[in-house]
Amino acid sequence: MTSAAHAATEAKRIRASERAFRIALKVIRDAGLPVGKVCITGGQIEIHCADVDANETGQKDEGLKQW
């Protein structure tokens, strides 16, 4: 392969499809897991699930009583 042809193949843009992203989020939602963070870099999708315990409490009052 010539250097010009090699450079053309390296410059090809890769990105994650919206369909793949929606399918991944649907699977996580159907499993009942809370999503904490989503990172999309090029063709890679990273979905980080939040702690289940943090979602169950609902309040972050650190044990303070209601007035």
Rank of each mutant, 00 (worst) to 15 (best):
C39H: 12
T2S: 06
I45N: 03
W67A: 10
K65T: 15
E46K: 01
E18A: 15
G63F: 04
A54M: 08
A16K: 09
P34D: 05
F21Y: 12
W67C: 05
K37S: 04
T41P: 05
K65F: 14
G42K: 00
A20H: 12
V52S: 03
C49W: 02
D51P: 12
V38A: 01
I45Y: 06
A24V: 02
R29V: 06
A54D: 06
M1K: 06
G58A: 01
G32N: 00
R19K: 15
C49V: 09
E46L: 00
A31F: 04
H6M: 08
S3N: 07
G43W: 02
S3Y: 07
A24I: 00
D51W: 06
E46C: 01
K65L: 14
V52Y: 03
A4R: 09
G36K: 04
V38D: 03
D53A: 11
W67Y: 09
T57Y: 11
D30N: 13
A31N: 10
I40P: 02
D61E: 09
F21H: 13
A8G: 10
D61N: 12
I14P: 11
Q59H: 12
Q59G: 10
Q44V: 04
A5N: 00
V27T: 12
N55P: 03
H6A: 13
E46R: 04
K26Q: 15
C49H: 04
D53E: 12
N55K: 15
E10P: 10
Q66A: 13
A5K: 00
T2W: 02
D53R: 03
T9K: 13
T41E: 07
T57G: 11
A7Q: 09
A11M: 00
Q59W: 10
